[in-house]
Design a binder for these strands. Structure first.
Length: 743
DNA sequence: GAACGCCGTGTTTTT
DNA sequence: CACGGCGTTC
């Protein structure tokens, strides 16, 4: 490449960047912290910085390790870098922490006593192992719920506390039990030549800690490390970055403390706040210009999040103009909510020329999508749900994959048990018990034991025959796998096992759906074969096991997108609806109980800042939740948005007296310890708070008397209000359906 | 050995 | 409400 061409391309890389962005791209090697507010061009900076390192600093692509939060983000980044630097981009490591660790561990497995064909267990698999442990240890799974146990184990792993260390710091009975399970759980994973998600991180760390020589190797392999969404890294990930990066110190992390929303799975905002102490000489750059949202949306989001203490100060601004006000719609119940959203989706298409793909609906929990989906189907609005029951967690998909997993890793007993009698081939609990006993006695895997079914004395002839048949099937499939593309192996799995046939025999709609899903899986395998002609079954399985639904989210044109607020991270849409903005839903009741409102607020901030032009909030006065009707307050977050940014749409029909039907937008939230279960009345400002809450001059609204202005605040929780109809009334704040509209 | 149905229970977010 | 676990029945 001539130097002129090179220079031109470097100029290109910097063209169109604002000052701080350009600085972040050009800052020479060494630690760099980029605090990137929502929509401030973070991805742009990352991709351009990588390109800059390659084009201007002479860094070789394969020396770069770039970590993203999802596989989708990784793919996008790869693509964008490729357009900047060309096909060499393909030699870079751009992936999630988990994928990167898995890749490293494939090469290093033997160092840890694993074989390189280890299986990665997903959440349901992990739970199954926990359950088995509880059973083996004779622990009552009523008193020790597997999910809870697993959560504790997972959190320990994220803090790099292994089973032994955990046992050493136990200080109550529950943890003591967990410690025993943890230890057995690890044994079982190891015996199955399997790792869970957390192991990928923890084992990578221990590899590096145990074997300095391997650390040296990987350290010099990745001379430059870049980490996106650093605010959502956990301790293990942070340690990993430091192990690899602390020596050469070419560590660039990008993130936004206001967007940390994964503390429940071990993420520690502290990591980004502490970057300066880990790397005192770090350059720190703030990106504060937002290129995504209108000023209205931005101001509103800033107001909300500024209620959180201890933030890194940021001042997001935009020059995109004020734009539309934020619509806040009060509706009867979840059905009215769905109707409202569907109505607006239709209207925006007709009147504003919005495309369905421009619109997204965010909710707090997956269950909320149901009602919406029902109505969308009836309205003929096509939509897609991101997340929820994930494609790769569907039973039929997991069954098919379990066959492949057993073929690839015969030690994997979870997968073995999953498929040994699916479809039914007469291998029941009794036969399996014999098989397991035999395997344990002989020190064999279940697959190996099945191959020697004839030697199992207490097996009934029918069971023996069935097991031998299954064993033969697996061997046959393994032979195919050894010499054929993945898609072909999969096809044979589905047919030779009789899996498809048994579904066809069901003759139900669900079974047809399952077959379609399986065909889609075959499609995925074919696609893989095209992309990676030399790809192995193992690599295919690894890719799949770390793949989530968000990763699949491609720009399909004519559908509205439905997803949880968590899944919305990193995305943007011209129009965003945030539904269920109610106390107990969002913020979630459990977050209220656990006093973790700051994270909920950040979640709100993330949701709001996804919107480019229009932002809607909806809240219901009554909602069916878990089979029972509940009456919730409007979310406190709504009250944190300034009035002049809001287009309030009270419930249709005459305003009715009573809680939540005031026709006034929700007032600033006063209650401090109000959980979703507290009767609504208690959530109203009490007598003592009245004086602090209302001030003369406040604009208020009354459910019956309409709008007015506070003229006086009296003792005993009484305020005087002059209403728009000219009347003046004294009202008991404690009981009157009175809402503050603005101060 | 499999299928059905009952009951109790637990409900956030996910790499 | 929805699912998993467990007992009953064929």
């Amino acid at each position: 490449m001539s130097s002129a061409a090179k220079k031109a391309s470097v100029d290109d890389l910097l063209a169109g960047l604002n000052e701080p962005q350009s600085q972040a791209v050009q800052t020479p090697s060494g630690p760099l912290l980029v605090l990137a507010g929502a929509g401030s061009g973070k991805t742009r900076v990352l991709t351009h910085r990588v390109a800059f390192l390659i084009a201007a600093q002479g860094v070789r692509p394969q020396e770069i390790l770039a970590i993203t939060f999802t596989n989708k983000a990784a793919d996008e980044m790869k693509e964008r870098i490729e357009t900047l630097v060309g096909p060499v981009a393909r030699t870079m490591w751009i992936s999630t922490f988990h994928s990167a660790c898995a890749r490293i561990l494939r090469k290093e497995a033997q160092q840890l006593g694993y074989r390189r064909n280890f299986t990665i267990y997903d959440a349901p698999d992990q739970l199954r192992v926990v359950k088995r442990c509880l059973k083996d240890l004779g622990i009552d799974d009523k008193r020790f719920p597997p999910k809870g146990i697993h959560a504790v184990i997972s959190s320990a792993k994220n803090r790099l506390v292994d089973a032994e260390a955990f046992a050493g710091m136990v200080d109550d009975f529950f943890d003591d039990t967990v410690a025993r399970v943890y230890s057995l759980y690890q044994e079982k994973l190891f015996a199955n030549n399997a790792m869970d998600f957390d192991d990928l991180l923890m084992r990578a760390v221990s590899l590096f800690q145990l074997l300095p020589e391997r650390l040296d190797y990987w350290r010099s392999a990745f001379r430059h490390i870049l980490v996106d969404e650093y605010q959502d890294t956990n301790h293990a990930q942070c340690v990993l970055v430091n192990l690899l990066g602390k020596e050469h110190r070419n560590v660039c992390v990008v993130g936004d403390d206001d967007q940390s929303i994964y503390s429940w799975r071990g993420a520690e905002v502290r990591n980004i706040l502490d970057f300066r102490s880990d790397y005192p000489e770090a350059t720190i750059i703030k990106l504060e210009q937002n290129y995504r949202s209108t000023q209205t949306i931005l101001t509103a989001a800033n107001h909300v999040v500024s209620n959180n203490p201890g933030r890194m100060q940021k001042n997001l601004w935009t020059d995109l103009g004020q734009g539309e006000k934020i619509v806040m719609a009060e509706v009867d119940d979840e059905h009215a909510e769905a109707r409202f959203v569907a109505g607006e989706v239709a209207r925006l298409q007709q009147e504003d020329g919005c495309k369905p793909r421009d619109m997204a609906v965010f909710y707090r929990v997956n269950a909320q999508s149901r009602v919406l989906e029902d109505l969308f189907v009836r309205y003929g609005i096509s939509y897609r749900v991101v997340g929820g029951t994930k494609f790769y967690e569907r039973a039929e998909i997991k069954d098919a994959l379990a066959y492949l997993l057993v073929i690839d890793n015969p030690s994997d007993s979870i997968s073995f048990n999953r498929v040994v009698n699916v479809p039914k081939r007469g291998i029941g609990a009794a036969s399996l018990a014999s098989l397991t006993r035999f395997a344990d006695a002989e020190g064999l895997s279940l697959t190996e034991a099945a191959a020697r079914a004839g030697e199992i004395s207490d097996l009934r002839p029918a069971g023996e025959k069935a097991l031998a048949g299954f064993s033969g099937l697996i061997e046959e499939l393994a032979a195919t796998a050894a010499s054929s593309p993945v898609a072909e192996t999969l096809d044979q799995v589905l047919n030779s096992s009789g899996y498809i046939a048994s579904l066809q025999a069901e003759r139900t709609i669900e079974a047809e759906g399952r077959i379609e899903n399986l065909m889609e899986l075959v499609g995925v395998a074919e696609e893989y074969g095209r992309r990676q002609p030399d790809g192995s079954l193992r690599e295919f399985l690894q890719e799949i096991s770390l793949y989530t639904d968000v990763d699949k989210l491609t720009e399909q044109s004519e559908t509205v997108t439905l997803m949880t607020l968590h899944n919305a991270k990193g995305l943007e849409f011209p129009v965003v609806f945030i539904i269920g903005a109610e106390e107990g839903v969002f913020p979630h009741s459990r977050a209220i109980e656990e006093q973790n409102l700051e994270e909920e607020r950040r979640l709100c901030y993330v949701g709001m800042t996804r919107a480019r032009q229009r932002l809607y909030f909806t809240y219901t006065t009554s909602r069916n939740l878990y089979g029972a009707r509940s009456y919730n307050l409007a979310s406190r977050f709504l009250a944190e948005i300034p009035d002049d940014l809001i287009d309030f749409r009270p419930m249709a029909g005459p305003a009715r007296a009573g809680y939540g039907k005031t026709g006034a937008r929700p007032s600033p939230y006063l209650g401090k310890d109000i959980s979703g279960d507290v009767p609504p009345d208690l959530a109203r400002p009490g007598r003592d708070e009245a004086a602090a809450f209302f001030h003369p001059g406040d604009r208020v609204a009354h459910a019956v008397f309409g709008g007015g202005v506070v003229t006086a605040v009296e003792r005993g929780g009484t305020v005087a209000v002059r209403f728009e109809d000219g009347s003046e009334r004294k009202l008991m704040v404690e009981y009157a359906p009175l809402r503050k509209v603005s101060a």
